[in-house]
Amino acid sequence: MNKVFLNVIRFVLLVTAQVLVINHIRLGGYVHPYIYLIFVMLLPINIPGWQLLLSGFGIGLTIDLFMGTLGMHAGATTLMAFCRPAIIRLVSGNQKFENIREPNISQLGFAWFLRYTLCMVTVHNFTLFMLEGFSFHLVGQALLRILLSVPVSIFIIMLILYFFAPTKKKEHA
């Protein structure tokens, strides 16, 4: 119950930060960082599949409502949520998650998280900018946007996660 509440708070904070702050940062027209992905990234590792998909769809659709791009973010985030189990398997290798409920930096390490963020952001941005490009016939620009936005998104997301990560000792004390 506590975890659900935490995720609801996270949802609201991330959407607010995304639409009221991050969307107004203008970096040359090609760079669009998206931090709301953190919500999907930090969902519990063993969350049931349908909850994962609906969470992704839900936050994407909320962002869409704010940006007037109905379906675009929802589509990209749903695909990202769909790929999440596979991505976690891919970046973990033989690592086990016995007492880890949510992905977090302090328990899984910086390197693991960087790989995880890289995969998730790439899947999301690629889908998003392609959907944007195809519906507006500007595929070349879409590719440039992907190339420039992915590193910035990763940087900002890692920064946020680093500052808001619960410390390991506190969790297990």
């Binding site: 599949g49 675009m72 769909f82």
Partner: peptide
């Protein structure tokens, strides 16, 4: 296959919304 099926349903929904509003 509920995971894959739900995914497909949601994506189709997105595409429909995208094409009907843009």
């Amino acid at each position: 296959h509920h995971f894959v099926l739900l995914f497909l349903v949601l994506e189709v929904l997105c595409i429909v919304m995208l094409t009907s509003t843009q």
